[in-house]
């Protein structure tokens, strides 16, 4: 249940401002693709165009094609709601629903899609929490509020919530930037496990993280402040970090800027 994403000639705008320009790439299924680059280079914006979350911001729009196993996500007949149902997302800051319990948080997405029996729901919640390596820590307090968990646990709860609806793709927008190193490690282990089932795309500021977890890496950069961001280079992660073909990539990776 994991699919390939093909992007061609994609531009994204905020009102009159062009945030990214002419991005084309292929994201392979059952692998982790990392986006790296300096702040403001449009990597998060690009990530949000992949499940049509970009257009949630007033005035934001997209031009170009995003194909999910050949099907255009931006075709006129496609609804953003169904796209997001198939392409899950985990955000920078853990955002469990504050008024819901742990159980309800995981069940939230599933409940949208019609009636599910109690036993079936219990099964999905357990399976998702296990999938997110959280089950053992919360199984005795499923009815407690999700906001009572630690930051790292909350983020894994959000991952459980995202995988509970069995998406084809999982997008992660700097999922560890608000977490301590131990929680970060837990999330990274989890990603390695989830990659067997999902296409995973992760935006990260942390180059070591990209090198540790990802199979392929794309480097985003912008010519100068105010200009749109572009993909400078995309390659196997191992090659990218040892032998990049672009000077800018090498400068960024070795910490000469950014």
């Amino acid at each position: 249940m994991s699919k390939q994403i093909q992007v061609s000639g994609l531009d994204a705008y905020y009102g009159g401002h062009k945030a990214i320009e002419d991005v084309s790439m292929t994201i392979e299924p059952r692998s982790i693709t990392a986006f790296i680059g300096p702040s403001g280079c449009g990597k998060s914006t690009f990530l949000r165009t992949l499940n049509r979350m970009h257009e949630v911001i007033p005035g934001a729009r997209v031009e170009g094609k995003v194909l999910l196993d050949g099907e255009d996500l931006y075709a006129p007949t496609v609804e953003p709601v169904s796209v997001r149902r198939m392409i899950g997302m985990v955000f920078q800051r853990p955002n469990p629903f504050p008024t819901m319990s742990i159980y309800e948080n995981v069940a939230a997405g599933l409940r949208l899609n019609g009636r599910v029996s109690k036993s079936e729901m219990d099964g999905v919640v357990e399976e998702s929490l296990k999938g997110a390596n959280l089950w053992n820590e919360v199984k005795d307090r499923l009815s407690k509020p999700g906001a009572g968990l630690s930051g790292g646990q909350q983020q894994r709860l959000c991952i459980a919530r995202a995988i509970a609806v069995k998406p084809q793709v999982l997008l992660m927008d700097e999922p560890c930037s608000a977490l301590d190193p131990i929680s970060t490690l837990a999330i990274e282990d989890l990603m390695a496990k989830l990659k067997d089932d999902y296409t995973i795309v992760i935006v990260t500021h942390n180059m070591q993280q990209a090198a540790r977890v990802s199979d392929r890496t794309a480097f985003f950069n912008l010519a100068e402040q105010g200009k749109p961001g572009k993909v400078i280079e995309m390659d196997e992660t191992s090659r990218m970090f040892t032998n990049p073909s672009e000077k800018a990539t090498e400068d960024y990776i070795t910490g000469r800027f950014g």
Partner: peptide
């Protein structure tokens, strides 16, 4: 190739 499913009429 599975097509992207539409949301149910009820929800819409």
């Amino acid at each position: 190739m599975t097509t992207i499913q539409h949301i149910s009429t009820g929800r819409r």
